[in-house]
Simulated scan of single mutants.
Amino acid sequence: MNPERVARIREKLTGALAPVLLEVNDESYKHAGHAGARGGQGHFSVTVVSEAFTGRLPLARHRLVYAALGEMMTTDIHALAITAKAPDEVA
């Protein structure tokens, strides 16, 4: 687990998307020995609920998340599972 990376992901997503709900999980332990893990990059999952996703298709939502994370997508993150919803889609 890499708490510094989790904190940076959280900070970048919060700054860019002002989420009403944000969960960031480091799942790198599930991929020990995998090429990305050997290279030092991590596997993460995020759940983001934000007004920024209202009226956008899933691909556009994912692009917003990728843009928010910027360089981390090439330097720190090997794999990212994204759940991105608008507030009215959450019960």
Rank of each mutant, 00 (worst) to 15 (best):
M1V: 05
M1L: 07
R5I: 03
V6L: 02
I9N: 01
I9V: 15
E11H: 06
K12G: 02
T14C: 07
T14W: 08
T14Y: 10
L17T: 09
A18L: 07
A18K: 15
A18H: 13
L21P: 03
L21S: 12
L22E: 13
N25W: 03
E27H: 06
S28V: 03
S28Q: 09
Y29L: 08
K30E: 06
A32C: 06
G33A: 11
H34Q: 12
G36Y: 09
G36N: 03
G36L: 03
R38E: 13
R38G: 01
G42H: 02
H43N: 10
H43Q: 11
F44V: 00
V46K: 00
V48Q: 02
V48K: 00
V48M: 02
V49D: 00
V49T: 02
V49K: 01
E51C: 05
A52D: 12
F53A: 04
F53S: 01
G55S: 13
L57Q: 15
L57P: 08
L64V: 07
V65L: 09
V65K: 12
A67Q: 15
L69T: 01
G70M: 10
M73W: 01
T75Y: 07
D76N: 11
D76Q: 13
H78C: 02
H78W: 04
A79V: 05
L80A: 04
L80T: 04
A81Y: 09
A86T: 09
P87G: 12
P87L: 12
D88M: 09
E89F: 10
